[in-house]
């Protein structure tokens, strides 16, 4: 109960010759908002994707709420779980993509209800009202029957957040949720995420929005070259970083 929500130990990942994650250790407590910063190519997105097994790790372990993700341990070996099990674990983790990835041939409502109905096998009578509540929460109650293409980027990303929430996950992962948006639409998406943060949802947010990190993050982690080089409260990491790399990055972004 008091264990961390996310626990990464010595996570390594390579794509061919490219060693993207070089031994990452990271902990996120329940209810904590972690903002993951770092230059592009530092491995932030890959790290986030290992947390719901979209990327398989080469070495090390990922635990979510105390359970190993994607594997079963026998002695000192990790055996990959059958796909059905991996899918069940994923329904406890919401993922929001940079490019939204809404299903364009389904209405907003169908985008929200698809996974609760077919992956969690919950009754429609329970899922439909949930979808209505979530759309109201992200301010799009009137768009339930619209197709995603007819919405602005900011609206699409808010639908994508509602779709992730429809699984009622323990953990939400955001992969640069505002990077594909026009500048004037960034605020509406960040407002939704802030609202969730205040509601006590555990989340990991990869972003370049330093202002957002300062305002919302409980902790900030800074990644460089496949490692977490700095991890602490925003005031310390953002204003008084220990490492030269962190200082240089924040100086550039601000």
């Amino acid at each position: 109960m008091n264990g961390p929500m996310v626990e990464l130990r010595g996570v390594h990942k390579s794509f061919g010759a490219l060693h993207v994650l070089r031994g990452v250790d990271l902990e996120v407590r329940k209810g904590e908002v972690l903002v993951l910063l770092g230059p592009s190519g530092s491995g932030k997105s890959t790290l986030l994707r290992t947390i719901n097994h979209l990327e398989k790790v080469d070495r090390g372990s990922v635990r979510v709420d105390g359970r190993l993700l994607g594997y079963r341990q026998a002695g000192d070996r990790l055996h990959e779980l059958p796909e059905r099990e991996v899918l069940r674990q994923r329904t406890q983790i919401g993922f929001v993509f940079q490019a939204f990835n809404l299903f364009p041939h389904l209405t907003v409502r169908q985008n929200l209800t698809e996974a609760p109905l077919s992956a969690q096998r919950r009754p429609r009578a329970e899922v439909e009202p949930l979808a209505e509540r979530l759309l109201t929460r992200v301010g799009l109650a009137d768009k339930a029957d619209a197709y995603p293409r007819t919405l602005s980027g900011g609206q699409q990303q808010r639908v994508a957040i509602a779709r992730a929430l429809a699984l009622e996950p323990k953990l939400l992962l955001f992969d640069e949720p505002t990077s594909a948006l026009d500048p004037e639409l960034v605020g509406e998406v960040l407002d939704v995420i802030k609202d969730l943060a205040r509601g006590g949802t555990t989340m990991i947010v990869v972003t370049h929005e330093i202002g957002f990190a300062r305002e919302v993050a409980d902790t900030v982690a800074f990644m460089d070259a496949g490692r977490v080089v700095e991890h602490g409260p925003p005031a310390q990491v953002l204003d008084d970083p220990l490492h030269e790399r962190t200082r240089a990055f924040i100086g550039k972004v601000l």
């Binding site: 719901n52 979209l54 059905r84 899918l87 069940r88 674990q89 994923r90 329904t91 983790i93 993922f95 993509f97 490019a99 990835n101 809404l102 299903f103 698809e114 996974a115 077919s118 992956a119 969690q120 779709r163 699984l167």
Partner: peptide, 14 residues
């Protein structure tokens, strides 16, 4: 688009 497969997988769809 590859993102469609990823989104479907991330949502845990069979």
């Amino acid at each position: 688009d590859h993102g469609q497969r990823e989104a479907a997988a991330a949502l845990g769809l069979p």
